[in-house]
Design a protein around this nucleic acid. Structure first.
Lengths: 190, 190
DNA sequence: GTCTATAGACAGATAGAC
DNA sequence: GTCTATCTGTCTATAGAC
């Protein structure tokens, strides 16, 4: 049973997550989040001392989302190839959002990378990318490609990120559709 | 002979270009640009009515830079393959900056794509990407790949963008070194 | 009475416009 | 260099549950 506080905290994080994605962290104010969540901004400090603390909660949420997703695929799908196919399909399935706002991981990583004083929130997207890379390496290793598993994982992830960035820049899903097709073919011919 | 006004305007654009790249547009204030350029911010309004107008001048500068570069390569290098090799070498040559601040085109495109009211500055990075894509297609066509020139160009550019984004995210040039090598091989086997 | 949670006003700093 | 708006961050009075 969740306490009322936990529930309210969750609503703030949810609203912030959505606004950070659509408008960017820098262009989202507490007033915006207050309006979207229906919670007065005076309350925010009861739950989060600074904006960065709230940002960290949002990034943790995205990290947990991926951790759960990857874990689910490992139990639901027996074949490593099927898991990888499922992975490269993410931008395609979410293409409407990717076209409009970019990749939720890549775009926030790019935004946070610009701030000069290196803070904890800056290394969080890195950790989530790392989680995905390690998972990919595991699948490639299971396919007998232990030696170049790291290389293949980097290739897959950079492909996906490049396609998402350009699909967003041009607001054209041809980038995502084509690259996804190419990646499926890449996995099949391993 | 440049007038003093033109020179001052150029200095403002130059300082803004640098700061927009390193800190991001949103985190760069007029005060920062004033300090970097040595020009009082009170004067800015004489040259640029709004921050967006200054941003447009910066984006135009980057566009002109690429237009000149691509044009130079067409006269200096006879072989289309050599031109393409030169192109994919850009992130590698600039890798120190790319690792620290990302791709000057990709990162600003990602940042501007987050603002909601669609403004003119948002479509400018798109135009520069378009310039590069058209140039690539021209080279592929000269190599007898007219049919899939657009496809190959998208592939090349998304590869480069993905590698730059992740090299920046991880602050590790392995992404750029590896992907560049791969792209050289890709061009050689055309 | 005490703890959790809420609401609104307000300070200080800083932004861009002029 | 001034003006005004807006931002993050703080303070305090208080409501309700138990």
């Amino acid at each position: 049973m969740k306490s009322k506080g936990e529930e309210q905290k969750g609503r703030i994080v949810e609203a912030a997550n959505d606004l950070f994605y659509r408008r960017g962290v820098g262009r989202t104010s507490f007033a915006d989040i207050a309006e979207a969540s229906g919670i007065q901004k005076g309350n925010f400090y009861f739950y989060f001392k600074t904006k960065e603390e709230l940002l960290l909660a949002v990034l943790q949420r995205r990290h947990d989302f991926f951790a759960r997703l990857l874990s689910e695929w490992e139990t639901a799908l027996a074949e490593p190839k099927d898991r990888l196919h499922r992975m490269v399909d993410i931008p395609l399935r979410d293409r409407d959002d990717v076209i409009r706002y970019g990749c939720p991981l890549g775009s926030i990583s790019a935004e946070l990378g610009k701030s000069l004083p290196v803070s904890k929130s800056q290394t969080q997207p890195q950790a989530t990318f790392r989680l995905i890379l390690d998972w990919m390496e595991k699948q490639f290793t299971a396919l007998g490609r232990k030696e170049d598993a790291a290389f293949l994982s980097r290739r897959l992830l950079s492909h996906m990120q490049g396609a998402s960035l350009l699909g967003h820049a041009f607001e054209d899903d041809v980038w995502i559709i084509e690259e996804t097709e190419d990646l499926h073919h890449f996995i099949d011919t391993l």
